[in-house]
Amino acid sequence: MGDLSSAFESISSADVDPDADWSLPGWLYTDPEYFALEMDKVLRPSWQIVCHESDIALPGEYRTLEYLGESVVAVRGDDGQIRAFTNVCRHRAMRLVEGHAGCVKKFVCPYHAWVFETDGRLSGVPMKSDYPALKLEENGLAPVSVEVWRGFVFVRLEDRGFPSVAEMMAPFEEEVAPYRFEEMRRISDVRLRERAVNWKNVGDNYSDNLHIPVAHDGLTRIFGRSYEISDHGWADRMKGDLVEKPSANFWERFYQTHLPDVPHLPPESRQRWLYYKLWPNIAFDIYADQIDFMQWLPVSPTTTVLREMAFALPDDRREMKLVRYANWRVNRVVNQEDTWLIERIQKGMASKTYGAGPIGASEVCLRSFARKIRAIVPEARLHKAPPAGWSRK
């Protein structure tokens, strides 16, 4: 792919991007050949959230993440360290574990009983003398890079120059510190929802500001005109402050009026809904009552799985539990509205009449994302798909 840092330096601002006033073209949202290239160049080197470190607090506890045809297992070792490996036995490629979570003393392959330690070492092979080429020290589990940022565990399949999660979130450290992410615990297990859309359509919609007053009546009622977005290079920031006027909607009004005291947050954060999108496909919604994570994992050019989790500080107050339920009721409607939008956008992207659309100056997050994609895959500048086989030339 070339050096990523130099690629981004050459197109680091809209001033030197000749395509800055255009969106990504529709063919990038449907073309199988482009999809394969994008998975290799964009998704494989990118960080993906797996869990919170409290989910794997004890030695042997693990959580899994499946994407791009890979299964990754993040596990707490006997030494207390968190590591990640592909969930593949080095003998005949058997999956070692199933499901989202579990706990093991050792990984024992269910096919031929090869044994791997929680630090990845191959420590046991039945009939070991039967394998002339076998060297235990060279056949441990294949490692995957791990980063723990403020208590959350991230992995990536390949290291090719993208910044760390800490680097992407550096502009917001002062803002997020009071939420005490490290002390949070899971309140909702993994939810997987398949959508008939290209993965980029999910992210584009998440960072889009212009559709809020048009398509989200509920958010407009509770935010008024306070909703705003900003681009910070590798991360987008969106926020809306709850208005004092009680909403006509029951659950919106319930949330507005019954949110209990959250003294660990500064006053301006207690009525704020804060959203971040990390390059290229992770988002987290921060509320005074909880934090929701979502990532959109590509399956095909026109299919994506949304993977969602929720975390919060331990709080047994009845009013907090009710407010969290109200939060869910409000955002369930928002999610339904967004699903309706992106599925219809996806259909439009398949039209041969659509090339690329003009992009507004205020659409700073969409501009930033498109700029990166064009830097990584120069063919993304083409408003119409090139002849088949272009990626192999």
Rank of each mutant, 00 (worst) to 15 (best):
G2T: 10
D3A: 14
A7G: 10
A7S: 11
I11D: 13
A14D: 13
D19L: 02
D21R: 03
L28K: 01
E33Y: 02
F35E: 09
C51G: 08
E53K: 00
D55M: 06
P59Y: 05
G60T: 04
G69F: 13
V72E: 11
V73R: 14
V75L: 06
G77L: 05
D78R: 07
R83W: 03
T86G: 04
V88A: 12
L96E: 06
V97D: 01
E98P: 11
G102E: 03
K105I: 15
K106P: 09
K106W: 13
K106E: 06
E117T: 08
G124N: 02
V125E: 08
V125G: 10
V125A: 02
M127W: 15
L134E: 13
L134F: 03
L134A: 07
N139E: 01
A142L: 10
P143R: 07
R150A: 13
R150T: 01
F152P: 06
R160K: 09
A166Q: 04
E173Q: 04
F181P: 12
E183T: 14
S188H: 15
V190H: 03
R193H: 11
R195W: 14
K200A: 03
V202H: 12
L210H: 10
I212N: 05
D217E: 02
G218S: 06
L219M: 04
L219V: 11
T220D: 03
T220M: 15
R221W: 08
R225W: 15
S226L: 02
H232W: 08
D236S: 15
R237A: 00
M238W: 06
E244P: 14
N249E: 08
W251A: 10
Q256V: 00
H264M: 12
H264C: 13
L278N: 14
A283C: 11
F284Q: 01
D285V: 00
F293W: 10
W296G: 07
V299Y: 07
S300W: 04
P301R: 03
T302H: 15
T304K: 00
V305M: 10
L306G: 05
R307V: 09
F311C: 01
L313T: 00
L313Q: 08
P314Y: 12
N327S: 15
R329P: 06
V333P: 11
I345W: 02
I345C: 13
K352C: 10
T353V: 14
Y354M: 10
Y354E: 14
G360Y: 02
G360D: 09
P378Y: 06
R381P: 07
R381N: 04
P386R: 01
P387V: 05
K393V: 12
